[in-house]
Amino acid sequence: MRIKLHVWRQSSRSDKGHMESYELDNVVEEMSFLEMMDTLNEKLTVEGKEPVAFDHDCREGVCGMCSMVINGEAHGPKSKTTTCQLYMRHFDDGAEIFIEPWRASAFPVVRDLVVDRSAFDRIIQAGGYVSNHSGPKPDPNSIPIEPNIAETALDAATCIGCGACVAACPNGSAMLFTSAKASHLGLLPQGQPERFDRAKSMVSQMESEGFGSCRNYAECEAQCPKGISIAFIGRLNSDFLKASLVEPIDRRGDMKAQ
């Protein structure tokens, strides 16, 4: 296969960056997209040019490291597929392929296709956990969990934190990621005590990181490699509303009789 690539090149956070074009003629259909990128980099290296920096690690669709917008779609044209799991057989011979980094002000470009997603970690720090210490715990079977609920929690927990939802969202919103984590814990009995605080603090962290507002386009769901459902966004909205409007602020305050 012969392909023409247009790749975003940017040498540092402060560099302006630009698109650059390359041609590759030794691509085969069975190659994964990242193997195609390896081939490009090998070629650039041998030619004495700088290879394209891109994040990747597991190359099997779970670490959430790979992050390319391919022809305008986060992780490329195949749905429910990470960049590393995309194969060249999904492109035509002679195809022209545009490769760009995730675009969002909360994800600054570090170099070429590498972006800084530490904002996601900080959202988790704001409450994406069950407060816990290591040590003896009750037997798990003492709290049975309806399998359907456990599975729904797992659907949410399947999120790999790649950030494609943000990249895909025209508003740069991180609601899909945030809601997936909040729902994973919010659905399980272990997550109940902190459920409403979690919703509030994760959302407020998400805002202060500079993510945009969700406008229910569902573009995130469509481009999410794990197919995380926007149903979780609805759940988070509802938890957030309850937390803000219904949950008592002052449970233990003084009361007087009339």
Partner: peptide, 22 residues
């Protein structure tokens, strides 16, 4: 065995059977 207890207490959603047991 303590590892399973620990993980479940963190909210790790292990597969469950119909009765809700692991």
């Amino acid at each position: 065995t303590s590892i399973i207890d620990q993980a479940v207490s963190q909210g790790v959603p292990f597969a469950r059977e119909y009765g809700g047991k692991l």
